[in-house]
Simulated scan of single mutants.
Amino acid sequence: MLQLTRARWWTYIIVAIVGLAILAPFAWMISTALMSTAQTLQVPPKLFPSPVTLEGVEQVFQRLPFWSLLSNTVLVSAARVIGTVVIGVLAAYALAIIKVPGARFILIGILALLMVPGDIFIIPNYAIIASAGLTNTLVALFLPNIFDVFAVFLLYQFFRGIPRELVEAARIDGLTHVRIIWSIVVPIAKSGIITVALLTVLSEWKELLWPIVINRSVDKLPLGPGLALLQGTYTTDYNVLMSAGALAALPMVIIFLVLQKHFIASVARSGLK
């Protein structure tokens, strides 16, 4: 019993240390955001702002079209979430419930694609988008990314747990596949779908390389590349950069806090780490 108690306390200590290490960069960002430019240049560096100032936040709105960048990010993220969830649900339903011919080989292909770095698809995606005349548009930001193999794989894990008898009974009652998905599958796999949506928003929110490649106008960029504009060639006002980063991260922190129970439930149920 004593050994179990000691092991539990060591677990708590290790988790606390890891948690503090993860939160340290975020705390440093907030601290720097509340400093003046002069404070960020002091040697040795200051850990806490004294006095606290919102100079960096004011500079963000003066130097960047922040609300335009934010609205672009929200629109693109919403479009990508809708596309990813719809395609993921339909594909996972076909593989797990209907069991279409060749489902096993399709799953092997999905697992193989998960092992390929996403950046390798930038050139073919650019060629497709350019040939369609969609460069420098908001559509170009999300269209190549709505086909997410990880979303299909994650939802497949959830749909496998749905009893086939339930689906077969619904088919006998005359329900179409669309009605079965909407009335039976989606409510059962709600946590998994919310997790896919959350991970998709997070992925789109921090996207940097693809928007720079496909779009050139500042009014067509999301937050990630927009914040990069605050980095100067010879010098950078880090309080301004950290203020912009904190403002950009705030919506995602709020979304995660609201939906965290669904995320934890999906991880526990699917067995994924």
Results as ranks from 00 to 15, higher is better:
residue 177 H to C: 05
residue 181 I to G: 01
residue 89 V to K: 03
residue 215 N to E: 03
residue 231 Q to P: 01
residue 136 N to K: 09
residue 13 I to N: 05
residue 247 L to R: 02
residue 10 W to Y: 13
residue 149 V to T: 12
residue 116 V to L: 08
residue 258 V to M: 11
residue 248 A to P: 03
residue 141 L to C: 02
residue 61 F to W: 08
residue 61 F to H: 07
residue 195 T to D: 09
residue 6 R to A: 13
residue 250 L to Q: 08
residue 206 K to I: 15
residue 65 P to I: 06
residue 236 T to W: 06
residue 197 A to S: 05
residue 47 L to K: 06
residue 233 T to Q: 12
residue 84 T to P: 02
residue 119 D to K: 11
residue 217 S to C: 08
residue 56 G to T: 03
residue 160 R to Q: 15
residue 8 R to Y: 14
residue 209 L to T: 11
residue 18 V to Y: 06
residue 32 T to Y: 09
residue 109 G to M: 05
residue 198 L to R: 02
residue 178 V to A: 12
residue 140 A to S: 10
residue 101 P to H: 02
residue 44 P to F: 09
residue 120 I to D: 01
residue 195 T to E: 05
residue 31 S to H: 08
residue 5 T to A: 15
residue 86 V to L: 14
residue 127 A to D: 04
residue 183 S to V: 10
residue 66 F to I: 00
residue 254 I to D: 09
residue 246 A to I: 09
residue 59 Q to C: 00
residue 3 Q to H: 12
residue 125 N to R: 07
residue 81 V to S: 03
residue 119 D to W: 15
residue 262 H to E: 14
residue 185 V to Q: 00
residue 192 G to R: 02
residue 244 A to Q: 02
residue 124 P to L: 02
residue 43 V to G: 08
residue 115 M to Y: 06
residue 231 Q to C: 03
residue 67 W to R: 10
residue 66 F to Y: 07
residue 243 S to V: 00
residue 202 L to W: 10
residue 34 L to Q: 01
residue 194 I to E: 04
residue 117 P to Q: 10
residue 134 L to Y: 03
residue 176 T to H: 10
residue 98 I to D: 03
residue 238 Y to H: 06
residue 111 L to I: 13
residue 196 V to E: 03
residue 88 G to W: 01
residue 105 F to C: 09
residue 115 M to K: 03
residue 24 A to F: 15
residue 163 P to A: 10
residue 3 Q to L: 14
residue 234 Y to F: 12
residue 13 I to D: 08
residue 31 S to E: 00
residue 13 I to Q: 13
residue 97 I to C: 01
residue 22 I to F: 13
residue 92 A to Y: 08
residue 119 D to L: 13
residue 176 T to I: 07
residue 226 G to E: 03
residue 181 I to C: 05
residue 166 L to Q: 08
residue 56 G to H: 00
residue 133 G to P: 02
residue 93 Y to K: 04
residue 62 Q to E: 14
residue 154 L to I: 09
residue 215 N to H: 07
residue 23 L to G: 00
residue 188 I to V: 15
residue 144 P to L: 05
residue 91 A to I: 07
residue 47 L to I: 12
residue 228 A to C: 06
residue 24 A to K: 06
residue 234 Y to W: 13
residue 34 L to K: 00
residue 144 P to I: 03
residue 92 A to L: 10
residue 232 G to M: 01
residue 104 R to I: 13
residue 230 L to V: 10
residue 212 I to T: 13
residue 163 P to N: 11
residue 175 L to Y: 13
residue 224 G to R: 00
residue 150 F to L: 14
residue 19 G to W: 01
residue 159 F to A: 02
residue 116 V to N: 04
residue 244 A to T: 02
residue 48 F to Y: 11
residue 134 L to T: 07
residue 263 F to V: 10
residue 60 V to I: 07
residue 258 V to N: 03
residue 216 R to Y: 12
residue 224 G to I: 01
residue 206 K to N: 11
residue 234 Y to Q: 12
residue 245 G to L: 01
